[in-house]
Design a binder for these strands. Structure first.
Length: 523
RNA sequence: GGCGCUGUCGCCAAGUGGCUAAGGCAGCGGAUUGCAAAUCCGCCACCGUGGGUUCGACUCCCACCAGCGCCUCCA
């Protein structure tokens, strides 16, 4: 796996044998989550599943930052208490995770529920000389940390800023707040330094330390958090405990909003070479349109996206590329991915028609070593074994879900080909031995998909399900199909095609098979 | 300006110092079908540009070009 700290891939060697502790930076709950917030959770949900499959016992923590300047601002804007805003957005976040099938997170610590730990942590840093109080604020003294900058690869000299609003009280502009004194009317907690609230980074250090220990295995987050958030976490935690915070740092690429402004940005940059200063603002504006989702004003709430796409579609979309790579977000792209996904869903339906069994509840190996696949005499089993191997190799190489999914596609095609070649579909065909081969292949598919949290249950696509489950609709469709079958029998194809065409226009697709006609609702 | 990432088929996207550079979407041809749909088969890439290292590079190094991120509170 790739480690931001060393900038190389390293083998996973856990602190405790067989156990992995993961801390992922969660959201600051001041606004509804957008798709960018789902990237980390989806990736780490898959990583946890995979590591569990490989044989580790994984503890995964995602924090909820529910006290923050932005939250205070949002609360006053909406005339609510900070707590009410936080609760509303936390609920939104949980709904989104649920829709995504992310149910492997073990702990969701909240900053406001860990004030004692945060204050204690801050006090320790003061006691050890790494932090200082100034008029009710407490700052981390960056100058005291020799290793500061090791994660993000920055030198202190290179970082000069004006120090924000608290410049006057800081020893150095690079110092950051551990504790902020409260202004009148702001939510606050009692502390040795007066009423106040925690700074941005401290809650992660305090809660990670409490749940996972002073040192743990993997710390994750978006690439944009490397600096300053993670750098500061490292600084305060390692100065406080005198030992490494996390052994591995994993950072996911950011979701980008696509826009036609890419060219505009390029042009203004070229202009900037001539008149350096003047074009900066221009460039920034272009970046807002084409840049990452987090800064894009048009970032739709994730819950809106879920009205259009199934959670699994989004998951598949994100998993289809490598986690460290930035992804451009556009609905066309998700549409494409969804079409590919349909290939799997159709196979699962076909599987049921052929074997009479449900793919989703198919028994499969839960652990890697249990699944070692010994091919039988059929050539197809050789191929299944190879795909399993390739899939696992891809996942072993820095969780390459994109490559792994490619193998899944090859696996479906293999299985489809087998059904075709052996003519397993159709009335009266039930060669038990061949069916057993199919089942073994499908169970490998089941096993592999489980490792990344895919195809866990049948998906209802938004927009395509309207009425489909309705009993009356079912009866009507049955009637249509019978009438049409009659027409076909009498070679009255004009009528038959007319029915099919008419239904297609209202989004119902008929498929004629040797053993009958099936129907489904398209989006 | 500093630190870093990326550039592979029309679009998306794996991957490798040397045998056929995955896969998906789109497209084209075929099998199948009364016609479709679905499925299967086949076709569709001189790996940003220019140097260098090497017996050999798309893969390593350098330069350049293009796009992108971070540089104090965005996952």
């Amino acid at each position: 796996m790739y480690n931001t700290l060393s900038k190389t891939k390293e083998p996973l060697e856990t602190l405790q044998p067989g156990k992995v502790g993961i801390y992922l930076c969660g959201p600051t709950v001041y606004k509804p989550s957008h798709i960018g917030h789902m990237v980390g959770p989806i990736i780490f949900d898959s990583i946890k599943r995979y590591l569990t499959y490989v044989g580790y016992q994984v503890t995964w923590v995602v924090n909820i930052t529910d006290v923050d300047d932005k939250l205070i601002a949002e609360a006053s804007k909406r005339g609510m208490t900070m707590q009410a805003v936080a609760e509303e957005m936390t609920a939104d976040y949980h709904r989104n995770l649920g829709a995504m099938g992310i149910d492997t997170i073990d702990h969701f610590p909240k900053a406001t529920e860990h004030m004692a730990e945060i204050i204690d942590f801050t006090q320790k840093l003061i006691d050890r000389g790494f932090a200082y109080e100034a008029e009710g604020d407490v700052f981390f003294d960056v100058g005291r940390d020799r290793e500061y900058g090791k994660l993000s690869g920055r030198s202190l000299e290179a970082m000069q800023g004006e120090g924000g609003g608290a410049a006057g009280r800081k020893k150095s502009s690079t110092d950051f707040a551990l504790w902020k004194g409260a202004k009148p009317g702001e939510p606050s907690w009692k502390s040795p330094w007066g009423e106040g609230r925690p700074g941005w980074h401290i809650e992660c250090s305090a809660m990670a330390g409490k749940i996972l220990g002073e040192s743990f295995d993997i710390h994750g987050g978006g690439l944009d958090l490397v600096f300053p958030h993670h750098e500061n976490e490292v600084a305060q935690s390692e100065c406080c405990h005198g030992k490494p915070l996390a052994k591995y740092w994993m950072h996911n690429g950011l979701m980008q909003a696509t826009g036609e402004s890419g060219k505009v940005g390029g042009r203004s940059r070229q202009a900037g070479e001539v008149g350096a200063a003047s074009s900066v603002a221009e460039g920034d504006q272009a970046a807002q349109e084409a840049g990452k989702i987090g800064k894009s004003k048009g970032a739709a709430a994730f819950s809106e996206l879920l009205k259009k796409y199934a959670g699994e579609t989004i998951r598949f979309f994100l998993l289809s590329t490598h986690y460290r790579r930035p992804i451009d977000f556009s609905e066309e792209r998700i549409d494409d991915v969804e079409k590919g996904l349909d290939q799997f869903y159709r196979f699962f339906e076909r599987y049921k028609r052929v074997t009479g069994e449900d793919f989703y509840t198919l028994a499969a190996a839960a652990k890697r070593e249990q699944g070692e696949f010994t091919p039988g005499v059929d050539a197809i089993e050789q191929a299944v074994a190879e795909h399993r191997k390739k899939f696992l190799e891809a996942m072993d190489d820095d969780f390459n879900t994109g490559g792994a999914i490619g193998d899944l596609f090859e696996l479906v095609r293999l299985l489809n080909r087998f059904v075709d070649a052996e003519k397993l579909e159709g009335a009266g065909k039930s060669d038990a031995a061949k069916l057993a081969v199919l089942k073994r292949g499908a169970s490998v598919m089941r096993e592999l998909a489980n490792t990344v949290g895919l195809f866990r249950s049948p998906v209802q696509k938004p927009g395509s399900s309207a009425g489909a489950g309705d009993e009356l609709v079912g009866k009507l469709m049955k009637l249509f199909i019978e009438v049409r079958a009659d027409a076909r029998k009498n070679k009255n194809f004009a009528t038959a095609d007319g029915i099919r065409k008419g239904l297609a226009e209202i989004g119902v697709v008929l498929e004629d098979r040797p053993d009958g006609t099936s129907w489904s609702v398209q989006k």
